[in-house]
Design a protein around this nucleic acid. Structure first.
Length: 313
DNA sequence: GTCCAGGGTGAAA
DNA sequence: TTTCACCCTGGA
């Protein structure tokens, strides 16, 4: 919290001097699904944190946050710092892995990538929804559920809080299917029931050990190891969480010589042991790098990222 | 128009 | 340990 003393508030924005933040990669790169480029097209992203509608944009030395719901600034600075993962040891991660063959170039190429600290329920809902889906569709699904069932806190249609689990239970699986969730609807309602009933105390899992919290999440129908690790990393204060999907598996093989066909479980165990408390951060930089290189090849290699000279063939 | 992959999971073989 | 169904949307 040493940075807050440098932050300033002007008539309509709050300046947070927290170092460079890559807003697009962090807010709209597959961690959260309810951030959209602002209508103003000034590079800012608009979304909801807690009950506040915020516009966030990059600024020298940090970010500028503008509440766009016409309400007072009370608590916005604190909640934004919290949401952007300000308590995480980014400096330790950087110095620890500056010479790493995969992460070193990534850190020099896009140093502003952060791991978010989201609301656990919205995060759990979002990643159950992510199963065999893609980011545009996840955004479509999560966004439409919020717009239909959430509580309006601003002038735009998307300015809504995420619906409480009780509301999801009340809406029911068929309603979610009608919104286009597909087979995931049958997982989401029982998960909502577990939270609404108090059977699953999501917020308590922030204090639990990684292993205990993970075991609780995996016991939910529709939550496997991958989804659990997403929720642990992005909302439950578990920086030792490492998320393995097929992209990450390829990266681990390419950069860290993991056997070609390691199981997902083995790869995740290996990575958690190797990256330790920096696993979630390492995971995000690796994921982002794989995504950029994949995108480059899809575009015929025309896009050359300076962090990826050997991938731009 | 068809085809296919997309930040998986659970159940059966 | 491997295979398969599950829903459906956008892009090729």
């Amino acid at each position: 919290m040493t940075t807050t003393e440098n932050n300033t508030t002007t008539a309509d924005t709050i300046s947070l001097q927290i170092g460079y933040v890559d807003i697009e990669a962090t807010l709209d790169g597959g961690q959260a699904f309810r951030w959209w480029p602002s209508d103003s097209q000034d590079g800012s992203y608009r979304g909801v944190v807690g009950r506040r509608v915020l516009s966030i944009r990059e600024a020298p030395g940090g970010v500028e946050v503008t509440p766009v719901d016409g309400k007072p600034y009370d608590g916005v600075e604190h909640s934004t710092l919290d949401y952007l993962g300000q308590d995480q040891d980014l400096e330790g991660f950087r110095s620890h892995f500056e010479d790493d063959p995969c992460l070193g170039p990534a850190l020099r190429g896009y140093s502003g990538l952060r791991v978010l600290r989201q609301d656990p329920w919205e995060c759990l809902f979002s990643f159950i929804t992510s199963s065999t889906s893609n980011i545009p569709r996840i955004k479509l699904n999560v966004g439409s559920a919020a717009e239909h069932l959430g509580y309006s806190v601003g002038p735009n249609a998307r300015d809504v809080t995420f619906p409480e689990p009780e509301i999801i239970v009340e809406a029911g699986a068929q309603f979610l299917r009608d919104l286009g969730f597909g087979f995931r609807a049958k997982y989401l309602v029982p998960a909502a029931e577990a939270v609404a009933s108090g059977n699953l105390r999501l917020n308590d899992l922030r204090e639990a050990t990684y292993e205990d919290a993970r075991a609780e999440l995996v016991s939910l129908h529709g939550v496997g190891e991958k989804v659990a690790d997403c929720v642990l990393a992005f909302s439950l204060d578990k920086p030792e969480s490492f998320i393995v999907d097929r992209h990450i598996l390829r990266a681990l093989h390419k950069w860290y010589k993991l056997p070609e066909k390691s199981t997902l479980t083995y790869a995740a165990d290996w990575a958690r042991d190797y990256f330790g408390e920096y696993s979630a951060l390492a995971n995000q930089y690796m994921f982002h790098r794989e995504r950029l290189s994949r995108r480059a090849s899809e575009w015929g290699g025309a896009h050359v990222d300076r962090a990826l000279p050997e991938d731009g063939s």
